[in-house]
Amino acid sequence: MQEEQPIFLQLAYQLENGILSGVYPEESQVPSITEFSVTYKINPATALKGINVLVDAGLLYKKRGVGMFVTQGAPQKLRTQRRECFYHDYIEKAVQEAKSLGLTADEIIEMMRKGFEDAN
């Protein structure tokens, strides 16, 4: 995730993270466009665009006159998507950086192991 991405994508990414981490459980209501735009000090049209990224992906749905809700199965769907992107988003970049530093494949694999251990 780049900080330099357009604001609406940053908002979409944060919402996705909220769904993945369970901050917004399935069938729960997410904050309104006004709440998002006031909190982040962004134009409501931008907030709407960010939320629509998730609506279009079937992760959020609209209850008319009530608000936006997390779709049943959204966390699983996101997990699958993010796993598919993992290689491109993280591995390719890590390998590129490792190569420029002269690190070998074995050395990185060892670091990954250590990372998993330290995270426990």
Binding site: I33, T34, S37, V38, T39, K41, I42, N43, P44
Partner: peptide
């Protein structure tokens, strides 16, 4: 300033 920007959006909404 922060408060002003937030209230401005609230007004607009």
């Amino acid at each position: 300033r922060d408060l002003f920007y937030q209230l401005l959006i609230q007004k607009y909404a």
